[in-house]
């Protein structure tokens, strides 16, 4: 069950849109924490038991792919599922991000339907992982 979500994006508008999509996708009861860059998001992930991280790619201080690398290379944090949202989503980049450990890459503009689909994938993955 997803109880705590961290949203990382340098745009407050993008964070608001993501938050709204997550709420419509059925995660309205989850606690949502926001970070304005990758470093802030990494600090939040380290200090909270996050069940999901939704991150943008193009951010100051630490960009999304560096954040993803930092999380997936940490034995303590690598179980945190990471979803990437970006306006820079070519197939080549999508493959690279999936290889790095993201479970979904959503192109902007995002929609609640795209979130629902990605969350279903996460649920299937975790069920498969439990078996």
């Amino acid at each position: 069950m997803i109880k705590t979500i961290i949203i990382a994006d340098d745009s407050r508008t993008a964070r608001m849109v993501t938050r709204r999509c997550l709420e419509i996708a059925g995660l309205g009861d989850a606690e949502i924490l926001e970070a304005a860059d990758g470093q802030e998001a990494l600090d939040l992930v380290k200090n909270h038991a996050a069940d999901l991280l939704v991150t943008d790619l193009n951010m100051p201080h630490m960009e999304g792919s560096a954040l993803l690398r930092a999380i997936k290379s940490s034995p303590r944090l690598n179980a945190v599922p990471v979803m990437v949202i970006s306006s820079m989503s070519s197939q080549a980049r999508e493959h690279e991000l999936i290889k790095l450990g993201a479970f979904a890459v959503l192109p902007k503009p995002v929609s609640p339907a795209a979130f629902m689909e990605a969350l279903e994938l996460l649920s299937e993955n975790s069920i498969a992982g439990e078996k």
Binding site: S87, S89, S90, P107
Partner: peptide, 27 residues
């Protein structure tokens, strides 16, 4: 900020339309 986010999404979509899905681009 709203306009900045719109431009970010619009520019990404523009490059995707222009280059196709196989080529990478940076903003």
């Amino acid at each position: 900020d709203t306009l900045a986010e719109l431009s970010n999404t619009l520019a990404g979509r523009f490059m995707l339309e222009l280059l196709g899905p196989d080529l990478d681009y940076g903003l």
